[in-house]
Design a protein around this nucleic acid. Sequence first.
DNA 1: AGTAGAATGATAATAGTTATCGTGTAATAG
DNA 2: CTATTACACGATAACTATTATCATTCTACT
Lengths: 167, 167
Amino acid sequence: MRLNISMSGVEGKSKGRESKRLEQFRGRCAEAGLACTHQRQVIYRILTEPGQHWTPDDLYQQARKEISSISLATVYKTVKTFREVGLVRELNLPYSQQHLDANLTPHHHLVCLTCRKVMDLSQAEFDPAFLKARIPHGFQVQRYSLEVLGTCEDCAGISGRLSNVVR
Amino acid sequence: MRLNISMSGVEGKSKGRESKRLEQFRGRCAEAGLACTHQRQVIYRILTEPGQHWTPDDLYQQARKEISSISLATVYKTVKTFREVGLVRELNLPYSQQHLDANLTPHHHLVCLTCRKVMDLSQAEFDPAFLKARIPHGFQVQRYSLEVLGTCEDCAGISGRLSNVVR
DNA sequence: AGTAGAATGATAATAGTTATCGTGTAATAG
DNA sequence: CTATTACACGATAACTATTATCATTCTACT
């Protein structure tokens, strides 16, 4: 059976907007030399739901609702590909499973160590007052974990343009 | 064979200072209700070498030099115990293995995505100018990853004092 | 529509970590 | 200083997260 390339699960009213997003995604795939498959479309759409930070397994459960035959391996491979071409980023959290973020605008995260909820925190250029003002009332900060990621002087010469591939 | 409780691998000259560190460690174990075993002493001493950020496996390789019979499982269990009682913390890095930090003073990290070197960066209260001044010349920042870890409002009531147990 | 190369799905393999359990050891009491 | 007991250790199995393999299927292009 041949599957239609479409944003399934979306009703007619917002079709125009969804088609636009699909076209954007198709363009990004073309740039990156990736096939714009149904699986990748669905996974990308789920990933870009605002404010969500998916693990591969949650992503798999969600994607199965639309493509019941999808494989967990496909989800992992897709996620890895998306990371490599810069469509998503990985959060650095103290949990065993990776968490993904399709919000590429610079921002930070507020993580509840109890329920593991992750909330976005807009970039504040590290201004402590500004940052504190953005932390929701009631959130008890236990610690900040700031990782400055980049390329050290010793490595700068070695691998010029490979360094944007995280992991 | 009965093993002497001692900081093996340390020569006589600095014995006084090492004994002091051992006594400190013994005290912390007593507080936490932990037995001050030879294995834990050695692992803790390795972990507290300044500027180092060990993975469990590296820690195992290092500890074997002093206790050839030590088990990898012991290293993992010890590390987990140390995390639970707050003797060490886990770094949040985009790599598969956990990295440990026995430096409990608030500070951040500078991570080279190429060679995976991790350098300490003293706490700067999120002042961007101060922070930038501390980044070594030649280090090319690709991104900041700030995770604010704590307890969200919803969870504040539920698990009052359990929240310092990370992971 | 036909074709080449890439992606998928099923599953095996691997890496990192944790659990199990019998033996050994540290802390405490006598 | 020795005996006891609960805890810790070591060996290994088990488990979880992730990646590799490979035959089949699909996408992109002609």
